[in-house]
Amino acid sequence: MTTFMVIGLVGLGLLLVSLVVGDLFDGALDALGGDAFSSAVVGAFVAATGFGAAAVQGAVGTALAIPVGLVTGSAFAWFAWWLTRLLSDGSSDSTPTTDDTIGRDGRVITQIPADGLGVVDILVGGHTMRLNARAEHPIEPGTPVHVTSVLSPTSVTVAPVWPEIA
């Protein structure tokens, strides 16, 4: 049991170092398949293998504790790989652009005159974008609007949102 506990603690140590320092195997194991052999995955595998085997060794003996530990380690390694991939593939890193506002709803901040520009706030990916806006007809402040096109990197064309019919 002591051997399996030491294996589990080594795995936890590897996970802790990976959390603080970053991926220890960055670039070293790229030929083996991307994130499948990151330090987080290897640490999860080693820790779960050691602790899983230690948990069942008293009940089933060492001969069966090793396969149980390996299955437990594989399950935790897969979960660490999945979680790492999920976090690294997040698309929230990009800065929203004016093109991202097309089809979004917003609210008029300053009046949009018939022949000029007003100001609207549009929410895109959790970011409020304040843009100049042009419309076919005058629109009063506070009116909900819908972005129909982009005029420039700082201005859009909007139309009032039609009220829902009950």
Rank of each mutant, 00 (worst) to 15 (best):
S88C: 06
A48P: 01
F51A: 00
D26E: 10
T49V: 06
V20W: 08
V68I: 15
T3I: 14
N132S: 14
D105H: 09
A55T: 04
T3G: 14
I112M: 08
I122D: 07
M5W: 13
V41F: 08
A47W: 01
D100V: 00
I112G: 05
I139G: 03
W162I: 11
T2A: 15
A80T: 01
A75L: 15
V20N: 10
W81D: 12
I165W: 07
R104Y: 01
R107K: 12
I139Q: 04
G8Q: 11
A77H: 08
D105R: 12
G90F: 00
A75W: 04
S152Y: 02
R104Q: 15
V156A: 09
V120H: 05
F76T: 02
V71M: 10
A75P: 02
L9N: 04
M1I: 08
G34W: 04
G34M: 05
Q111D: 09
G11D: 03
T62L: 14
V119K: 13
S94D: 10
M129F: 04
V41E: 09
G142Y: 05
S152L: 06
E136T: 13
A59L: 13
V56P: 07
V119D: 00
D121A: 15
V6Q: 06
T2P: 09
G13T: 09
D23K: 05
F4K: 07
L9I: 10
G8V: 11
H127L: 11
V161F: 01
L14W: 05
A48N: 02
D89G: 12
V20P: 02
G8P: 01
I7Q: 05
S91L: 12
V56A: 09
L86I: 01
L9R: 00
T49H: 09
V119I: 08
V147G: 04
A44I: 09
